[in-house]
Design a protein around this nucleic acid. Structure first.
Lengths: 334, 334
DNA sequence: ATTAGCAGTCACGGCGTTCGAGTGCCAGGG
DNA sequence: CCCTGGCACTCGAACGCCGTGACTGCTAAT
């Protein structure tokens, strides 16, 4: 149905369009690529490709432009991820290594990814529930109010205020802290739910009410907030007339955590690199290249870039993959 | 030199231009405002205002547009801050009260300010060095590595990694923690520099090297990072052809912490409301309305909005002032 | 199956015209 | 002296009108 040459034509169209931003015609196609056939032949191929929905023409007597379906085929079968050069890889590593806190790592990752791809970078903080607890701290700020600070092995620090039903003595707080740490240290928060329920037994009855409040904050409030921390950067790369929708809509979408979540993909399938194209993203005219990053083989969160459907997929995918790897490595070390 | 009517004309020009986005002519001026004179008279006044540099015409035979100098005069002498309505004030308070952590407070403030003013909101985190220390926590993550967590009375939590010159025993860490807390609790970090130097005496000699490392991180690394945390939002409000410079430049500027700092103003003069217009901001075509916010009378940090020079100053100033007040109040409570 | 040739389409850019808002100036009147 | 009505003038925006060129699709020949 689609012979070798037609695929080559589609590939050439995508590549040319991506680099020139202009509809590509049959003549310039044969000129630029080493196709040994005449423009007329290409035209016939293009007619078929159009019929099948891989390309379209903005108006009669203009060149062809890839459709979402065309990009899809290109990404799936016609292109290979372009690996980063050695120099680039070293630069990435050097840039990320300089960070001294999780916030810093994430901030740098965003900058790096945006600069590397010249697009909008989106980075999700390592999931709390999938990280292991390193330390839990309780600080009294009022007789009936505690500040709960959770430190994970990825260096993430989360805080939450706990309102207690009863006054708590410093001793009770210290005890609770000790019990929590003893029980949760080194475990993942997701697995902790089970152990915490049995934990109540170790708490003297008069303090159980307070302990319950702390547990519920730890499990509900923190775990819920968990996935929701996503930052982005590089919005300046949103140049003019890209994107079918207005630039304004894109900016609005980026400021909605919910939308950002969806862009990175709800399902955390472990596949390394995900490409969502055009309508698949929910933003018309936009594509998202995302990857899962993690340390020691288990996934922590996602990161990716958002750009116009017409983007350089091979390079972008290479950059995203490389950055995801290094971020995982850095977080695994700390 | 500028009689009452000329000032009224300038005020009218600013108001009309702000609301219509179009150069305003003499005729529409007398129509819309209740001026009891003829257009010709207004034209004469306008000629004088132009001569003095308060207004300009984009091209011959077009209406007049305020210059930076014109806006300046308008803000300083011709307008009054427009107070928020009771309903609006209640809404602000309700929206901000729902936050349960400092991050949340700041995030909500940004959203709120952006929505209220329909412009880009910029909020600086409460200054660390001007906040009082509530608690310091040290967590061993490796024999020669500590995680230093600092909790302030404004609810801000800062972390930093400390690399130790020598191995530290758990007892030594506990001791150091106790000393730090005893000495710094309730004090401002800025004042702490002095007390910390004397503090070394209380540390047994073998641990001094490690203690020194912790101190220096606390004072240098944390205190420096301190002012630099500024977030912004509402970039979707950057509509099209505002701003003399390209939209891209504005977005780029917003992603530079340094530029954000400058926008909010280096000098922390305690004056409540600052308006910087046009060239004064460093961004051509942009204005910044900013305010200091603080709790219990002492300043913590700044916040403000960035918009086109042609903005509704009275309303914007009202919104900024109101939000600054409520944020200060909320942070004072916690 | 490919190719050359040809007629047809249509966006784009340049050009001249019109239209109208708005100005500056001047002379007359309170 | 300040205000006003009148008038000629200016100039950008909008409109319409080509000519141009880059395409295409079709057909007939190889």
């Amino acid at each position: 149905m689609l012979d070798e040459r037609k695929l080559a034509v589609l590939r050439a169209i995508v590549e040319d369009y991506v680099s020139t931003t202009e509809p590509v015609g049959s003549k310039s196609l044969v000129d630029r690529h080493g196709l040994d056939v005449s423009p007329a032949t290409i035209r016939n191929d293009m007619a078929i490709l159009e019929e099948q929905g891989f390309i379209a023409q903005p108006h009669t007597s203009a060149g062809r432009v890839p459709t979402d379906k065309g990009y899809r085929l290109f990404v799936d079968r016609l292109s290979a991820v372009k690996a980063m050069s050695g120099a680039e890889r070293r630069a990435i590593e050097a840039f990320l290594s300089g960070a001294y806190s999780l916030d810093e790592v994430v901030a740098r990752t965003v900058r790096l990814l945006a600069q590397l791809t010249r697009q909008v970078a989106v980075v999700q903080y390592p999931s709390l529930s999938r990280s292991a607890v390193r330390h839990i701290e309780l600080v009294s700020v009022a007789p009936r109010r505690l500040l709960l600070v959770l430190i994970t092995d990825t260096g993430r620090v989360e805080q939450a205020v706990v309102d207690l039903p009863e006054d708590a003595t410093p001793e009770a707080v210290a005890h609770l802290r000790a019990v929590l740490n003893a029980c949760l240290d080194g475990h993942k928060l997701a697995e902790a739910a089970a152990s915490v329920t049995g934990l109540a037994d170790r708490i003297p009855v008069p303090e159980r009410a307070n302990a319950g409040a702390v547990f519920s904050v730890l499990l509900d409030s923190l775990a819920e907030r968990t996935e929701e921390r996503i930052v982005f950067g590089g919005t300046a790369n949103l140049s003019g007339p890209d994107f079918g929708m207005g630039l304004r809509d894109v900016l609005e979408a980026l400021e909605e955590q919910v939308v950002l979540m969806r862009l990175l993909g709800e399902s955390a399938e472990p596949s390394a690199l995900t490409v969502r194209i055009g309508a698949e993203t929910g933003l018309s005219g936009a594509s998202v290249v995302s990857a899962v990053y993690g340390a020691d083989g288990h996934p922590l969160a996602k990161l990716g870039v958002l750009g116009p459907t017409r983007m350089d997929y091979p390079s972008t995918m290479g950059a995203v993959r490389a950055v995801a790897r290094y971020v995982g490595r850095i977080l695994g070390e700390s």
